[in-house]
Amino acid sequence: MYHIGDQVVVEPTALVAGGAALARVDGFPIFAVNVFPGDIARVELVEVKKGFARADLVELITPSPWRRAAPCPIASECGGCDWTALRLDKQLEAKRGILFESLRRIGKIHDAPEITLHPSALNYRLRSRLHRDGDAIGFYAMRSNRVVPLAEECEVVGVNTAHVIPSVARDLGGRGNASQPHPPRSLADAREDIWEIDGRVITEGELSIAGYRLNTDAFFQVNRHLLQTMLQLVQTHASDVRSKKTAIDLYAGVGFFSAPLARMFERVIAVEGSPVSARYARVNLPANAKVIEAPVERHIAKLPPAEFVFLDPPRAGTRPEVIRAIAERTKEKIAYLSCDPVTFARDASRLIASGWRLSTLDLLDLFPNTHHVETLSSFERAQT
């Protein structure tokens, strides 16, 4: 029997949902971070359960050919990007495997369509949620609330954010000159969303991104490089619908997807629970789009039938009653943007059980250098 603090040598065989590498020692599964398939590594157990253990890297004995030279000096401890040491092509390969395995194991879906991959350039974040502890400003460490100071070599945040924030931290600590003489007011807080729009680093106020108006309290898609790709894919799915009478956008945010749908359909209904995002959706959308400020789960029973339904729920996915309503009231096509492969597999299984067929899968790499998997799928009514 293993105990917390034990050290073992592992040879991982796969990366799994959540980002850890799976290894088996005498048949016992160990999920380790900062190691990858092909590594031979010594790890220390930090959590031991009856059926598995979790571990941290202690020593890399033999590096995997999947690895690359980590460009960031804090890559092994920063929680902002847990896969930085993994080659970008292998990141995509691993994410595709995680999605297929989630569909097979969680959703019991064994005939999923081929996955189309959409890679992203680096320094992709429009918005970065950073934390401050004293003069340290950065992401939390892995599985910790300790703040790891952001490095200028960071490949996740915007290029200028990576330069400005470390200089602000140096100012706060009195350790030299900085390119920005005074930190943004809100960086005095313990947590702050830092936006970088067209090279400008912004912490509060109104923004304009790709023609959409919002403020720093509203939700917007994070990856600057794949905004148009996402819009084009959703428009392609919507264009397949024969009748263009009604489209519904659930978890609509500031209307990012509702706006192009409003150009294609006679009527669009956008449902958004956040008052801030709903307010900006009304600003961004034309007269044929109706914005309903309400939680989707509370309003779903009141929605009319629609030819096309698009949903972009949070990481937890959506509730069974939402799936039932969508399955019953959608006439032609459903498109689902998911940020978690496990909850997506669960929801996809429920749609299939309700008479729908999973017809397309696009994996959008919205978060390179991390384990996060974003999936855009489409469903059509199954042939009876």
Rank of each mutant, 00 (worst) to 15 (best):
R54Y: 11
E59R: 08
M230Y: 01
T216W: 04
P71Q: 08
K244P: 08
P184E: 06
L86A: 03
V254Q: 01
E293W: 04
I106P: 06
G79R: 01
D189M: 11
K90E: 15
S76P: 02
H182S: 12
L285R: 08
P181R: 08
M1N: 15
G51R: 12
S76F: 10
L361I: 14
A21Q: 12
A306L: 04
G205V: 03
D198M: 10
R105K: 10
R267W: 03
R127N: 13
R146G: 07
V25Q: 13
P183L: 09
R279H: 11
L99W: 06
C339P: 06
V296W: 08
D111Y: 03
S102W: 05
R143E: 14
D89P: 14
D362Y: 01
P166K: 05
A21V: 05
K49P: 03
A301H: 13
Q91W: 01
E114F: 06
S144C: 11
E206C: 10
P119Y: 00
A348Y: 04
A238I: 09
A169F: 09
G79S: 01
V168W: 13
K49D: 01
R279G: 12
I165S: 05
I74K: 12
A53Q: 01
H131W: 09
Q91D: 04
A252C: 09
W66I: 00
T161A: 12
I323R: 11
S354V: 03
G211N: 10
